[in-house]
Design a binder for these strands. Structure first.
Lengths: 202, 202
DNA sequence: TAAATTAGCGTACAGTTGTAAGCTGAGTTG
DNA sequence: CAACTCAGCTTACAACTGTACGCTAATTTA
């Protein structure tokens, strides 16, 4: 194995180790460099060959999480295009995502309100992508004016993420209930913004 | 000063110290017993005369925060009763609260998605009070059926808390903008649930 | 007033942390 | 092949952690 390959492999095992530790209810700021190194099977000081410090690793993890989130969006779009209600499909896709990638979503959720301003900003940016994407869709498909669509999209994303937080530690049955619940709430918002627009079109 | 008085005073200074440390971007799990003791001006080991461990202190802090939240609700109700739109008054009151008690709100926000299951549960319970209270109001005042009102109340509380998170680190101008934004979003929801009810009354 | 209680302190210890310094051996390059 | 590079290692250290143990001095109780 070439030197570069080996390095990439070790780097990945550090990232995997961090996600592993994150899995058992911990924040980025609550896991230590030595723990990560231990989990990754390297000496503590070898960590520095790959990351300047834990913060740099943290930002890398947030980036990876953001990547997963964007893949989620693409998947949702594809499923919507091939038929099915927008709200139902979106929520279902989202719930499948947080079930399959619970550690990724947990990371985003925790660090969104977490200790590090840098992480908070990074997560907010990823969520903003999500919101932008949704508002574009609303504008194009539902023909709702831009400023209303933006507010609607933001509300919807916030509700879905909030429901996702509840679903994170729920079993399949509770998850289904949470899904139905948030779907109804999203319909309220959609109805509401439509009603608002028809009442005061500008 | 009696022994009991002195003890209460020291206990309070421990609580104050913890809130102080919480003020500078930290989680409960990220502040150490020794730091709290230092800030409170007592010896590390004296801490144990008042709390079994940091977790017990943490739950105490969450309780205090919940108390503040309930006072906020009472204040909002009073202001609504003495005239003014429900949404406007509620949001304004809430924003004033998180400005004046930013550390309290930050605690709730962080620990709501935090590391400790016990804290998460405690915070969720406090937020649930909030939601229950609001849905009662919606049922009584707006005559909306129970199950719809519950969904509406939950959506609203989630949006307001989510907006509060953004407002936490915003200046006065940005805060005002966030307020206006969330007020509109709350109106969407209200319109939506009303429309839903009139469309499918049961 | 004598005895009992107890809030707070000082000392101590084992465990963990981040990271500095320098070595080694294997892959890379000329 | 010789020189170089560099990922990963071992050792080391100072800082910090939670908390056990026992003392003191002042209040409370009998």
């Amino acid at each position: 194995m070439s030197r570069q390959e080996q390095k990439l492999k070790t780097r990945q095992s550090i990232i995997d180790a961090a996600f592993q530790l994150l899995n058992e209810n911990r924040t980025l700021s609550a896991i230590s460099l030595r723990e990560v190194a231990r989990e990754a099977g390297i000496a503590p000081t070898s960590f520095y060959r790959h990351f300047k410090d834990m913060d740099e690793l943290g930002l890398t993890l947030v980036d990876e999480a953001g990547l997963a989130l964007r893949q989620l969006m693409r998947q949702a779009r594809r499923r919507i295009a091939s038929g099915g209600g927008v709200i139902d499909t979106s929520v279902d896709t989202f719930m499948e995502f947080i079930t399959a990638n619970s550690n990724v979503f947990r990371l985003l959720l925790r660090e969104h309100t977490g200790t590090s301003a840098a992480y908070r900003l990074a997560v907010s940016r990823e969520i903003q992508h999500f919101t932008d994407e949704l508002s574009d869709y609303i504008i194009e498909q539902l023909k709702i004016p831009h400023d209303i669509a933006v507010l609607q999209a933001e509300s919807m994303v916030r509700l879905v993420f909030s429901a996702g937080a509840d679903a994170l530690e729920a079993d399949a049955i509770l998850k289904a209930a949470i899904s139905e619940r948030v779907k109804k709430q999203l319909r309220f918002i959609q109805l509401g913004s439509l009603a608002f627009w028809q009442k005061w079109p500008d």
